[in-house]
């Protein structure tokens, strides 16, 4: 079932038996019809895998909308972008940025800096939020939020795109994301080591960034 863009900050979607929607808690703005909302914890181990999720640092609880009707979603006046998944590649997106998605999509949690020995540093560096992303697999719609909207930047093979982690929203395609350090940038920004962390995206696909360095609270 598709999401409909009502305006740049609000989307709507139909809910029906067998067509449930998962959404960030607090993202429901209004609904018509007979719809109920209850909390779920998705992640490794599936629904109810609360422990796995907490370990992975993903703490955003999701609400499932069940019943039949229309639900409007938005969050804190932020911009909402709809991304359609055709099943060919998963979408990686920071859990904090997920507004809503089809419940039929499978989600897993991945850590971007894995294997680099950077984990401890990165967690502390990027305002304690870490660079965990949720991966969504399957065919369906995803609504993600950002400050001021997202722009899609191409990632071409042999020509990596480097992204400010604060501006990173998500990525699709055959893309490898690596946390890297850039000393020259640290010098330029001069705001402590945290700002020197960058996300280097290589392979081929698309990376979504927002026009701001503000993270979602």
């Amino acid at each position: 079932m598709a999401f409909e863009q009502i305006n740049h900050k609000v989307v709507s979607t139909a809910v029906a038996p067998g067509r449930e929607v998962l959404a960030r808690r607090g993202a429901m703005l209004a609904y018509t019809g007979d719809v109920g909302f209850s909390p779920v914890h998705t992640g490794p181990g599936g629904i109810g895998g609360l422990a796995g999720r907490a370990v992975a640092g993903e703490h955003v609880s999701m609400m499932v909308a069940q019943g039949s009707g229309t639900v409007y979603y938005g969050f804190a006046g932020l911009y909402v972008t709809i991304i359609e998944l055709d099943g060919s590649a998963p979408l990686s997106v920071e859990a904090d940025r997920l507004v809503a998605h089809d419940a039929a999509l499978q989600s897993t949690v991945v850590f971007l800096g894995e294997g680099g020995g950077l984990r401890g540093m990165v967690r502390g560096a990027v305002s304690g939020q870490g660079l965990f992303t949720t991966q969504l697999h399957g065919v369906g719609s995803v609504a993600v939020m950002s400050h001021g909207g997202t722009i899609a930047l191409p990632v071409r093979s042999g020509e990596p795109t480097t992204v400010d982690p604060q501006a990173y929203v998500g990525h699709v395609g055959n893309v490898e994301a690596k946390v890297s350090l850039n000393a020259s940038w640290r010098d330029a920004v001069g705001r402590g080591s945290g700002e020197a962390v960058q996300l280097k995206m290589s392979g081929s696909g698309t990376v979504y960034v927002q026009a701001s360095e503000q993270k979602i609270r």
């Binding site: 930047l153 480097t162 400010d164 501006a167 330029a188 920004v189 960034v209 360095e213």
Partner: peptide
């Protein structure tokens, strides 16, 4: 300072 959000090259 800090206004760069992405680059290539």
């Amino acid at each position: 300072s800090g206004a760069m959000i992405a680059y290539t090259g």
